[in-house]
């Protein structure tokens, strides 16, 4: 066997002339940076967003959008304190508030109708929507994808079409138009929203959690009540809140399926402004704005805890 002599001599030479270990880092590089030197990732504050001028496009748009959203509200609130009916300011007065609270029986009945329908229909829709989301996610069956598509229909169809078809349906099966028909209609159009929100929550649901609960000694019922329900609760709650809002504000569908004595708040307000805007509505607006703001603030804590648990 012949070896390449070059390889051999190189290896031997390396053995004989072993160099002392080298310091790879020169001492000068170890000197500390002077105190107060900013790190490389910290830009001075005014350089963080280069094109953020005071009257830049984005700032102007922001102001315009906010103005567009809130100016009408501001006008309504202001004129609710106006002494006269017209759009001319004649002096401060609480007359319309007095009328709203003590001389508007019809309005408050409409408000009560809206409230009752919103609560009942959203609870039923939340119950059905959550169960259908769970069923479609957990069980595999053939018509699964069709049901999913069909359940989204009420969300994408124009409200007018839903309203008319419901009117025809209720007449055909001889269900009298009134509170019950509105309740059914609202439950129907609320379902897909709840379904969607709960489905989204289930998407991130880790199924091994169910096995873990069983493994740790929970029975099937305990697993459902202590693990599954609490972990999808945030989705269910946001579905419920969404459904209440949708039901409270719906006009078009309610318009078609309402009957005598079942006027909801949006329908009542609409019928009032047909005879000129009554300042009572302005007063009602402020009451509603304040009420909803208080509710929202109250719910914020609740929503925050929900968000923290997700």
């Amino acid at each position: 066997m012949s070896t390449s002599p070059k390889v051999k001599s190189a290896a031997v030479a390396a053995k004989l002339k072993k160099q002392p270990k080298k310091m790879r880092l020169e001492p000068s590089r170890l000197v500390e940076a002077p105190k107060g030197t900013p790190g490389p990732y910290k830009l001075p504050k005014n350089q963080m967003f280069q094109d953020h001028r005071k009257f830049g496009f984005s700032n102007i748009m922001l102001v315009l959008v906010i103005a567009f959203l809130f100016m009408p509200l501001f006008v309504v609130v202001t004129y609710s304190f106006n002494a006269s009916r017209g759009m001319r300011w004649t002096g401060f007065s609480l007359e319309w508030y007095y009328k709203l609270f003590f001389d508007s029986k019809e309005l408050w009945r409409a408000f009560a109708n809206s409230f009752v329908i919103a609560i009942t229909s959203s609870i039923v829709a939340t119950f059905l929507g959550s169960l259908s989301a769970i069923g479609i996610k957990w069980y595999k069956f053939k018509s699964r994808s069709y049901i999913q598509v069909v359940s989204f229909l009420p969300m994408v169809l124009p409200e007018v079409i839903i309203g008319i078809s419901m009117l025809i349906f209720f007449t055909a099966v001889k269900i009298p138009l009134g509170m019950f028909s509105i309740f059914v209609a609202h439950t129907t159009f609320n379902l897909p929203f709840v379904f969607l929100l709960v489905s989204a929550r289930l998407e991130e649901f880790d199924f091994s959690v169910i096995e873990a609960a069983r493994d740790l000694g929970a029975t099937e019922r305990q697993t459902l009540m202590k693990v599954i329900v609490p972990s999808i609760m945030p989705g269910v709650m946001s579905g419920l809140l969404m459904a209440i809002t949708m039901s409270l504000e719906d006009f078009v569908i309610t318009f078609f399926v309402s009957g005598p004595g079942s006027t909801t708040l949006p329908l009542y307000v609409y019928s009032m402004i047909r005879y000129g805007v009554s300042p009572v509505i302005n007063a009602l607006s402020l009451v509603l704005i304040l009420g909803i703001m208080l509710l929202a603030l109250g719910f914020r804590r609740f929503l925050k805890t929900i968000a923290a648990s997700s």
């Binding site: 880790d206 091994s208 959690v209 873990a212 609960a213 648990s309």
Partner: peptide
């Protein structure tokens, strides 16, 4: 479990 399977709400 491989995926930890902790209860997210607790």
């Amino acid at each position: 479990f491989q995926s930890y399977a902790l209860f997210p709400h607790l």
